[in-house]
């Protein structure tokens, strides 16, 4: 029952990653004109273009190219950067912690703020509701880079509470780490928290109007118990869905935030790679983001089963 669902969902995820990997591997060929000359640059001589072609294996049949790229990628080998000549995986390893820290912290902020405010708004209605709805609309409307700039202006420059730029690894200095990621995570998470708050509010309002809530009241359940045992679980599904979608979007948003706060993260790496036509790096970046998004979707799907017994029993 439950394990079959797991296997099916897992199979689906593997399939998506596989299809994405084909696109990623053959991405070089999507560039207009000749891939090798594009990679080699505008001023390359014919010999340089030819050597680039051989180095990238572009003269091999396409399926051979894919197979060798994919087996390497499975081993974590994405080749070397065309610009720095460093192994791509090493570059990724260097920048990933900063990006993951900010994204995860942003998600936590979004969940805590969004669920709390949305839940209160849905339960209390009235003034709380209107204030939250207004705040949520603002939060959604404000671009995260602008929020980031505001945060920097006030909390970093004006009050000097947080550092303006850069990143400190968690392993080196936990306090410094927290200090450095707070503002970027807030900038990134506030918009998402608005989205989560809206969804939570909607879910709670919906559930509160359900007949089974009246039943629970008719049984004599007090408010707190009503919320904990009857509302939360039933209202969770749309919230989890939105969370999944939003975390996917965060990976895009974090690129901008990294620019605003001058953090050397995955996004910065990707932007630089695109500008430099550093294909191996772009490939690694796209595949990694795909895997993360697919994994989050998988988790969301599986959580449906955990939240709603009906999904669990469906074939």
């Amino acid at each position: 029952m439950s394990s079959r669902l797991l296997v099916r969902r897992l199979g689906g995820s593997v399939l998506v990653v596989f299809l994405a990997s084909i696109l990623v591997a053959l991405m070089v060929h999507l560039v207009p004109g000749d891939a090798a000359s594009a990679v080699a640059g505008e001023n390359a001589s014919p010999e340089q273009i030819q050597s680039t072609r051989e180095r990238l294996g572009l003269d091999e049949p396409i399926w051979v190219q894919y197979f060798s790229w994919a087996t390497d990628a499975l081993r974590g080998d994405f080749g070397q950067s065309l610009i720095t000549n460093r192994p791509v995986i090493e570059m990724v390893r260097q920048v990933l912690p900063a990006t993951l820290s900010i994204t995860l912290a942003a998600s936590v902020i979004a969940v805590v703020i969004g669920v709390t405010l949305g839940g209160l708004a849905g339960l209390r209605r009235g003034v709380t509701d209107r204030v939250t709805s207004l705040g949520a609309s603002l939060g959604i409307a404000m671009p995260s880079f602008w929020v980031g700039m505001l945060l920097v202006t006030f909390f970093a420059l004006e009050f000097d509470l947080f550092p303006v730029l850069d990143y400190t690894p968690l392993t080196e200095d936990p306090v410094g780490w927290l200090h450095h990621i707070t503002l970027p995570a807030l900038a990134l998470g506030l918009g998402m928290s608005a989205e989560v708050a809206r969804q939570t509010r909607g879910g709670v309002v919906d559930v509160m109007a359900q007949p089974y809530i009246r039943t629970a009241r008719a049984k004599g359940a007090p408010g707190g118990r009503l919320f904990a045992r009857h509302v939360v679980r039933n209202a969770a599904i749309p919230v989890v869905t939105v969370l999944g979608l939003q975390i996917g979007r965060l990976l895009g948003g974090v690129i901008i935030i990294e620019q605003v706060f001058a953090i050397n993260g995955l996004g910065t790496m990707a932007v630089r790679a695109v500008a430099d036509r550093d294909f191996p790096v772009i490939q690694a970046y796209v595949l990694l983001t795909t895997v993360i998004v697919v994994a989050i979707n998988l988790l969301v799907d599986l959580s449906y089963g955990w939240i709603n017994p009906r999904v669990r029993s469906e074939e």
Binding site: P211, Y212, T215
Partner: peptide, 12 residues
């Protein structure tokens, strides 16, 4: 109540 299906909590 009228509709027992929706009057029972579906997740309990």
């Amino acid at each position: 109540f009228q509709d027992p299906m929706s009057s029972l909590n579906p997740t309990m």
